[in-house]
Amino acid sequence: MSINDHILELKNVSQAYGSVNQRFVAIEDLNLIIDEGEFVTLLGPSGCGKSTLLRIAAGLQQPSGGMVLYRDNPLLGVNPHNAIVFQTFVLFPWLTAQQNIEVVLKTRGIPPKPRIARAIELLGLVGLGGFENAYPSELSGGMRQKVGFARAMATEPELLCMDEPFSSLDVLSA
């Protein structure tokens, strides 16, 4: 039983790059607590370490100092309850929109029929109904980003990290 409802807790997290004499500190002594149902936004100029922090929170990168706790347990490796929507969308270019989502469901052992239904449903949810068989190269930047959203939602994450998720969306879609 958890004593609080902190989903994610960052304790004195630091990230430095480079060697001793040429050190660049990207993040220093950062503390952050995210509770269930919270919506947190990080703001800052380019290069201030937003993406780095996101990678650390997701477990893609070990911080050079400090600790990441997920539901009060130290996070080792990638967090399976976390999904990221990447700044650059990163869809698999050789898979259609639908296949890009299906691959996530497939790897979680969902059989073909519900898998296809769920992928189509998710694409409809982000307003891409009818584009199931389009390849990423045939979609606009904003549409690709929406596929990225749909894919992130397919994992049913407890924590959704989004790296400049609306960068390519127009006012109406966002």
Binding site: A83, F86, V90, V103, T107, T155
Partner: peptide, 19 residues
Amino acid sequence: DLKDAATMLQLDRLTRWRT
């Protein structure tokens, strides 16, 4: 970033190779 995405999506070894 594509490798990161595959890691985040928890693709199993076979799927990672294939996709």
